[in-house]
Simulated assay, not measured.
Amino acid sequence: MASSLVPDSIGGLTALWLDGRAYDNQAENDSFDNAMQVRARRVTPDGTMAPESLLDARACTCCQTSAVRTGAGDIVAVYRDRTAKEIRDISVIRMRGGGWSKPASIHADGWEIAGCPVNGPAVDVVGMDVAVIWFTGANGDANVKIAFSKDGGAQFDDPLPLDLGAPGGRVDVLQLSDGTALALWMEYAKEGEAIIMCRVSQESGCTTPKALHVNLGRESVGFPRMARKAGGAYVAWTGSAEGSAGGTTIRLVEVAIAP
């Protein structure tokens, strides 16, 4: 199942994952608590595992989770939630002082969908500045959105729209030290799939989106991912392999980020 690993400063880590031990065990007229769960546990530097924590008893079945640690040492985790009425919006959970908060909705999109869209959110942090990006299909209208927090994920500003009109989601984000964020998502184009990148600010949103790659092959770009590098970022995705054998390979580009 989808999982996230968050290292700490002393060589341990916290694992957060979707847990299926109670999935699909609903009886007629029950409370619908028996669904995919979000759980977490800490692993110490010597490999000792702390007791599990049940963070949410009902989450979207297979959308990816994402989690980071703030400059204060708190954990901010985001995932696609799921209500008994099949509303699947993005929720955030925070770990402070060894205890987990209750799930809180980042924004009430109101996406009602009876199946998992396999399209989870992404979160990143610099200090206490947090950025969360996600896909939603609420009211039949596909959108990619981003929201910023200046207090370590306790509160988020109203989300900003990012997409160019035909988004497929599959998002990623890098929070930058100047308060802006580098957003990445997939957009459907006439030629195929386009990987779009944009630097986003709370004040002006996304002003200059750029297509990093347009996929013309049979295989999908999958879920493009970013990683920091000095002065910029690496972006990787699944691409079609060259030659008669076909198949897939991993493509990688370096992107410079202006200060």
Rank of each mutant, 00 (worst) to 15 (best):
D46H: 05
G47W: 03
T48N: 12
M49V: 14
M49K: 11
M49W: 01
A50G: 13
A50D: 13
P51W: 00
P51I: 00
P51S: 10
E52Y: 00
E52T: 05
S53H: 14
S53F: 15
L54E: 06
L54V: 04
L55T: 01
L55H: 02
L55F: 04
L55K: 02
L55W: 03
D56G: 06
D56N: 14
A57P: 03
A57C: 01
A59H: 02
A59N: 06
C60E: 09
C60H: 05
C60S: 12
T61N: 14
T61W: 03
T61F: 11
T61E: 15
C62G: 04
C62D: 12
C62R: 06
C63Q: 08
C63F: 09
C63E: 11
Q64M: 11
Q64I: 08
Q64P: 14
Q64N: 14
T65K: 01
T65A: 03
S66R: 10
A67S: 12
A67F: 12
A67Q: 08
A67P: 09
V68W: 14
V68C: 05
V68F: 08
V68T: 10
V68M: 08
R69M: 15
R69Q: 15
R69D: 09
T70F: 05
T70A: 08
G71I: 12
A72Q: 04
A72Y: 00
G73L: 11
G73K: 08
G73S: 04
D74N: 15
D74C: 06
I75M: 04
V76N: 12
A77P: 11
A77E: 15
V78G: 11
Y79T: 07
Y79A: 03
Y79S: 06
R80Q: 08
R80M: 08
R80A: 05
R80S: 06
D81M: 09
D81Y: 11
D81R: 09
R82H: 10
R82N: 07
R82F: 02
T83C: 11
T83M: 05
T83S: 14
A84Y: 00
A84L: 00
A84P: 02
A84E: 08
K85V: 04
K85H: 09
K85A: 15
E86P: 01
E86H: 08
I87H: 04
I87K: 13
I87V: 15
R88C: 02
R88P: 01
R88T: 03
D89K: 03
D89A: 07
D89P: 04
D89N: 03
I90K: 04
I90Y: 10
I90L: 11
S91D: 15
S91C: 01
S91F: 07
S91I: 01
V92Y: 04
V92R: 09
V92K: 05
I93K: 00
I93N: 01
I93R: 00
R94V: 07
R94P: 07
R94H: 04
R94D: 04
M95Y: 01
R96N: 06
R96T: 14
G97R: 07
G97K: 09
G97P: 12
G98W: 10
G98R: 06
G99L: 13
G99V: 15
G99N: 14
G99A: 15
W100R: 09
W100I: 10
S101D: 12
S101W: 06
S101N: 05
